[in-house]
Every structure is written in structure tokens, then in C-alpha cells.
């Protein structure tokens, strides 16, 4: 889910040491690129006299691989919902019991008993969002709330569409467009999915990340994109709109977890508690422009976020959203095969 990488390709890990000052302790955070508010980190450093170091990653797989290899020195990781069970199963996370922390009372009830961490024994909500489409109304004024924007583009958009090369999201969108459920291994349906994708591909221009900038400067006028990124683009370019595909779209949440081999466990726990404070959670959202899971954080949010159609899912499209499960290996192989065939 490399959308959080505003710039793209920070696979070349950028080491951003945020602030210095009098360090009594340390905390090493391993998080998605362009996703952590420096103000939040500064506030945490000052409140707890801790020196925080942030390292970026660009995908769940990258994070999982590096953490599994060991010797990384990170204390905190922020995996997506479908990766949390893998981290837990592989014994990579510490059971920090956030549900017993003082600030846990602030967590929105809806995000407490989640499928990937029932009762929140390991993780604390960071941000959540949706994967949909973004369209520049100057190029196409029709209804954007459909995956047909990229799977069967209207003639104004033929040859103009970008698709972010995020296999799990694109496959899920297409499967739901074809009438199936994410992680399906129904061969007939997958054949249909492949045919839809291969027929659509000649009508695309590119498969690239970094859509926040490219939508802002109109380099791209239609793309698969994430809500927060589209919101950031719209603030700079008011003709950009976000569409919730009515055929179905993925909902995701990234959660903060402490690693089993963390060296600064106490500071990491402090951080988990710290971000469950509504005022601090609002800082997270104010930067990356995704919603958080903390009740009462709205009143600390910037005004434009409270009503943004990218953040507040319209009633009519709520039912179409689905959390993506982690697909089994055999299913994953089918998807990779379709994906490779698509890009040959």
C-alpha cells in the first residue's frame, strides 16, 4: 500500500531522524513513508524525553521481511489489517495489552473488536481509509463512483487512466467489479477478472505510484487511488473528486504494534498510549489526511477534514466497503500469475 509514499520508491529506505534534543531514552519507529506527522513526534519527544527515529517502508511485505530477518533494531511497526495476523502468527509482536492502557477508553467502539486483533491485545489504531478512484472533473464530468473508471473507461478517459500497481487492491476491486468476493479462488470468476483486466489495460496510460502530486498538477486525470491521497490532491487542485466504487471497494486500517524483539519496550508502550489521546490522534490525521480510530479526535482536526467527502464515507456507499482478508498462498499464486500476465 505504497500510496503513503508521496514521492514513490522510498524502497531505498530514507532514514529520517526526527528532532534531537536531550535524549533520555530512544524509540525506533518503522512506518510507511510520508505517513508520520513530525509535529506528533516532536510532541512525544518533548513529553517523554525520548529521542525518536523513524525509518520508512513502502509495503507490508517489505516490513514483514525485514522484521522477520531480525537485527533491525525497530521497536514499533505499523502493519495493515490483513498483515497483523501474519505478524502475530509468526510471533513477531509483543502482547502489550493496549486494551488495559489508560487512553484505551478513547478508541472508537467500532475499532475495538476487530477481526485481525480481537479486543486489541496487540495493536492500536493508527489510520484507516479506503481504496477507490480519483477523477479530475475537467477531464470527465460523469459519475466517478464506479470501478468502470479504470476497468471500462468512458471514452473521455481512454488512454488517460493510471492504475496504482498495488496488486491486492487492484485485484480486489476487479474481483468485486466482476461480482466476486476478495480472496476468491473461483476459477470461472478469476478468468472473468483476467479478461476484464487484459481488455482494460490498453486503455491505461500508466501503472504508477505517487498520485498525490500527479493529481495535483494534472499529470494524471483519472486513477485508482486512496482516499487520503486524493484529499491531499484536492486541497491543491479543487477539480479532483474521489469516487467510491459502488461494485465494492477495499477498506483498510493500519495499526501500531510493538515488536517482540523491541529494545525500548516501555517507550513503545508509552507511544501506543500516547496516540490514543484524541488530540494526538488528530495530529496523525492532519498530516496524512486519513481518518483515525479515536473517538473525539474530530474536534482537534482541521476544519476541512470534518466534512471532506473523501474521509466521511457517504451513507449510500458505506455498504460497498469491505475489509481485505489475507489471502492463502495458493490464491495469492493465482493472483500473481494474473498480475504478471497483465504486465507482460
Amino acid at each position: 500500500m505504497s500510496w503513503k509514499l508521496g514521492g514513490a520508491l522510498s524502497a531505498l529506505v530514507l532514514l529520517a531522524s526526527a528532532g534531537s534534543g536531550m535524549a533520555e531514552g530512544e524509540l525506533n519507529i518503522y512506518n510507511w513513508g510520508n505517513y508520520t506527522n513530525p509535529e506528533l513526534i516532536k510532541k512525544f519527544e518533548e513529553a517523554h524525553k525520548v529521542k525518536v527515529t523513524i525509518t520508512d517502508y513502502d509495503s507490508n511485505t517489505t516490513a514483514l521481511t525485514k522484521v522477520k530477518a531480525g537485527g533491525h533494531g525497530f521497536d514499533i511497526v505499523v502493519p495493515s489489517a490483513n498483515y497483523v495476523p501474519i505478524f502475530v502468527k509468526e510471533g513477531l509482536l509483543l502482547e502489550t495489552r493496549p486494551d488495559q492502557m489508560p487512553n484505551f477508553k478513547n478508541v472508537d467502539k467500532k475499532w475495538v473488536d476487530v477481526s485481525w486483533d480481537p479486543g486489541r491485545h496487540y495493536t492500536v489504531p493508527w489510520q484507516w481509509g479506503t481504496t477507490g478512484v480519483a477523477v479530475n472533473t475537467k477531464a470527465y464530468a460523469g459519475d466517478p463512483n464506479t470501478s468502470a473508471i479504470f476497468l471500462d473507461p468512458p471514452k473521455e478517459l481512454v488512454g488517460q487512466v493510471n492504475v496504482v500497481p498495488e496488486m491486492a487492491d487492484v485485484m480486489a476491486l476487479t474481483i468485486m467489479y466482476a461480482g466476486g468476493k476478495p480472496c476468491t479462488d473461483d476459477k470461472d470468476l478469476l478468468r472473468k477478472v483476467r479478461d476484464i483486466l487484459t481488455a482494460a489495460k490498453p486503455k491505461w496510460r500508466s501503472m504508477d505510484y505517487g498520485m498525490t502530486e500527479k493529481l495535483s498538477n494534472s499529470d494524471v486525470v483519472a486513477t485508482v487511488n486512496w482516499n487520503g491521497s486524493t484529499f491531499r490532491a484536492r486541497l491543491k487542485n479543487p477539480t479532483v473528486v474521489y469516487g467510491y466504487p459502488k461494485e465494492g471497494y477495499p477498506v483498510w486500517m493500519d495499526s501500531v504494534a510493538v515488536l517482540a524483539d523491541a529494545k525500548n519496550v516501555e517507550n513503545a508502550k508509552l507511544f501506543q498510549n500516547f496516540i490514543m489521546d484524541p488530540e494526538n490522534a488528530a495530529l496523525i490525521s492532519a498530516f496524512a489526511r486519513y481518518a483515525n480510530g479515536i473517538a473525539g479526535s474530530d474536534k482537534f482536526m482541521p476544519e476541512e477534514m470534518k466534512t471532506a467527502p473523501e474521509i466521511v464515507v457517504p451513507e449510500a456507499y458505506k455498504a460497498a466497503g469491505t475489509f481485505l482478508p489475507t489471502c492463502p498462498k495458493a490464491t495469492q499464486d493465482l493472483y500473481t500469475a494474473i498480475w504478471t500476465e497483465l504486465q507482460k
Binding site: 514513490a8 493510471n162 504486465q343 507482460k344
Partner: peptide, 9 residues
């Protein structure tokens, strides 16, 4: 990856 748009691997 950056200039080719990633459409063709």
C-alpha cells in the same frame, strides 16, 4: 519504474 509508468514490466 519511474519513467516508463510501470505498465510494461
Amino acid at each position: 519504474r519511474v519513467l516508463g509508468g510501470g505498465k510494461n514490466m
